[in-house]
């Protein structure tokens, strides 16, 4: 029997199986994904396209191969629940009574204090059933009490993000560089964790300025050393000690450095969407509040960003 065509067919079938199962099926599910309803901030869909500088910065990130040491995927291993009081309502005594029932180890004075400045966390780290039961107990008192869902996991505990990364986070990225190593910290949410552009510039120039025993190589070639003109440039790096250039010279970021920093600042993964149940503590949101999106942080900092 001529095995040749048989092997060919078998191999084609085997390869087609894994291609259909993994590549095609996921394309069917996620290929036409659109920005989703942001369930927290009513003003915007999620994700937003990165603004121009940040998009160019993504290209710099790709070209320098930053993904070789940095991942961009936060993981989650579980979740826990808090119960929070958002409005004490009018019947304060009933609320205090219920509070003492729900939290037996609290004293009356502690309970009163919780009512003074809502929102206040009444119960921490309880199961969903316990949280729901507590909320039910508060219904007749007229107070506004809510269950807060808090994702948990080592990455989240480390402060690398408030929730796990999902497909939606990478919707507009080309290429999506998830990374597979953590020689350096995870960068998925670095824009909210470190919103200071100046810090990023210093770190890129020489990581040892910021982290003394850093393994990250210095990216001095992203910066330009030039003579100080009549006045120092507004975006010159403020270097000291052995990192400072010689007298009369200043270090100025090139366009690539600026773009890369803009990209880093645009890396945020703190928006709650359907796939990532999580409660973001709501202040009474005014219309001017900065949106929690993948857009760059509000321009509250530094002279480097342009």
């Amino acid at each position: 029997m001529n095995h040749g065509p048989l092997i060919f067919l078998g191999v084609f079938f085997a390869l087609a199986l894994s291609w259909f199962g993994l590549v095609f099926e996921s394309q069917l599910q996620l290929g036409n994904a659109q920005p989703t309803t942001n369930l927290v901030n009513a003003a915007q869909l999620y994700p937003q396209m990165r603004p121009g500088q940040a998009r160019q910065g993504l290209d710099v990130y790709r070209s320098l191969g930053c993904a070789a040491c940095h991942s961009q995927q936060i993981g989650q291993t579980g979740r826990t629940y808090d119960v929070a009081l958002t409005d004490a309502g009018t019947n304060r005594s009933a609320v205090v009574d219920t509070l003492l029932k729900v939290k037996p180890d609290a004293t009356a004075i502690e309970a009163q204090r919780l009512l003074e400045k809502p929102p206040a966390t009444i119960l921490k780290d309880v199961t969903r059933a316990a949280a729901d039961a507590a909320v039910a107990k508060f219904e007749p008192t007229g107070a506004k009490v809510e269950v807060r869902v808090i994702p948990t996991g080592p990455d989240i505990a480390r402060g690398w993000g408030k929730r796990r990364s999902v497909a939606e986070d990478f919707l507009f990225d080309q290429p999506a560089m998830l990374g597979s190593q953590r020689v350096g910290p995870d960068l998925a949410d670095v824009g909210s964790r470190l919103p200071d552009a100046n810090l990023h510039s210093l770190h890129l120039y020489d990581p040892q300025i910021v982290v003394s025993k850093s393994v990250m190589p210095p990216y001095r070639f992203l910066f330009e050393k030039r003579k100080i003109g009549r006045e120092p440039s507004p975006d010159a790096l403020k270097l000291a000690g052995k990192f400072a250039p010689e007298q009369g010279c200043e270090i100025v970021p090139t366009d690539e450095a600026r773009q890369l920093v803009a990209y880093l600042l645009s890396l945020r993964a703190d928006t709650a969407i359907f796939e990532t149940p999580m409660t973001v503590a709501r202040a009474n949101v005014s219309t001017n509040a900065p949106a929690a999106t993948n857009a760059p942080a509000a321009q509250t900092t530094n002279s480097v960003a342009k």
């Binding site: 996620l30 290929g31 290429p175 999506a176």
Partner: peptide, 14 residues
């Protein structure tokens, strides 16, 4: 003809 978003990573891992 790049696919969208995280699918790129899926194809790459595959």
């Amino acid at each position: 003809f790049p696919v969208r978003g995280v699918l790129q990573a899926v194809v790459d891992w595959w």
